[in-house]
Amino acid sequence: MRLEGRDLACIRGGREVFAGVGFAAAGGEALVVTGRNGTGKSSLLRMIAGFVRVAAGRLDLEGGAPEHTLAEQAHYLGHQDALKPSLTAMENLSFWSSYLGSGQEVQEVEAPMAALAAVGLEAVAGFPAAYLSAGQRRRLSIARLVAVKRPIWLLDEPTTALDRPAQERLSELMGAHLAGGGLIVAAAHGAIGLERAKELHLGDDA
């Protein structure tokens, strides 16, 4: 599997956010997008996820499941956690795992409880999401990536609000995903615990 972007440009609100961006990543590889604020790291991730139109250039996925679009094979972990405060942690996760996992006949869907355990949240499974701290909410979002297997992970500053043990846990999960042939594109300011990651620098302050 190989994800490739050539000469990509993004226009938002009439302003050109970036242009001429190219990258390539294969299964088992991680790509870290760096750059100052406003250089379009998040926009690039949202473009790969299909939320932002590709203004110019090409975005291709080779070797994925042909019957699914790129967006349907990707997990997007953004700044917003997509959690409903009045539902319990378990209800939030099982909803997303049935919603996102329903079209996945090839890829397996893991039991939500196991996914909660993978991020260390089994103790608060029955609590409303409103009671969870920022770090716990972040973990709950990450549990979604574990619960439904998708080959491409798009992570926007994934370590935000996570403490050191949680960052290590995330790093292990990302390692396992890469080892299984998955692909990660992450936007980050600092280190996020990915060894041997390719780097794509946006903006011209290099």
Binding site: E72, A82, K84
Partner: peptide, 14 residues
């Protein structure tokens, strides 16, 4: 839309 659920609904394949 505000809590990001809509983004994920778009990636759902439905």
């Amino acid at each position: 839309a505000e809590d990001g659920s809509l983004d994920l609904i778009l990636t759902g394949g439905t």
